[in-house]
C-alpha cells in the first residue's frame, strides 16, 4: 500500500500542466473537457472508455488531478503498445486514494 506511485514526479508535472491548461473547475475536470483530449490520442473509443473507468476512481464523472494523471498515464502506455488493464493495478492507484 505504501509502494511508490508508478506515475513518476516528472510525468506528474507534465500531466498536471495539461490538467491546468484544460481549465479545471474546483480542482475537477468534467468528462466534456477530458474527452476531446483522450480522443486526440486516436486510440479506439472502447479503449478510452476503459481508461476512463479505471481513472474515475470515485465514479463521479469528473477527474481530479490525480485521476487525470492515471488517465494520461494509461493513454501514453497504450500509445506505446501496452494493453490497458481491466482493473487498476494497486501501484497505479494514487497514494491519496488508497
Amino acid at each position: 500500500a505504501d509502494a511508490p506511485w508508478v506515475v513518476k514526479p516528472e510525468e506528474k508535472m507534465k500531466f498536471d500542466a495539461i490538467f491546468e491548461s484544460l481549465g479545471p473547475v474546483g480542482g475537477m475536470l468534467s468528462g466534456d473537457k477530458v474527452k476531446p483530449v483522450l480522443l486526440n490520442s486516436k486510440l479506439p473509443v472502447d479503449i478510452l472508455g476503459r481508461v476512463w473507468e479505471l481513472s474515475d476512481l470515485d465514479r463521479d464523472g469528473m477527474l481530479d488531478r490525480d485521476e487525470f494523471s492515471v488517465a494520461m498515464f494509461l493513454v501514453y502506455r497504450a500509445l506505446e503498445g501496452e494493453s490497458v488493464p481491466m482493473s487498476l493495478p494497486p501501484p497505479l492507484v494514487p497514494p491519496s486514494k488508497r
Binding site: V34, G49, W52, D60, G61
Partner: peptide, 13 residues
C-alpha cells in the same frame, strides 16, 4: 463489461 443501468458517468459510453 461496463456496469449496466443508471446514468453512466463515462463520457465514452
Amino acid at each position: 463489461q461496463y456496469p449496466a443501468g443508471g446514468s453512466s458517468t463515462n463520457p465514452f459510453l
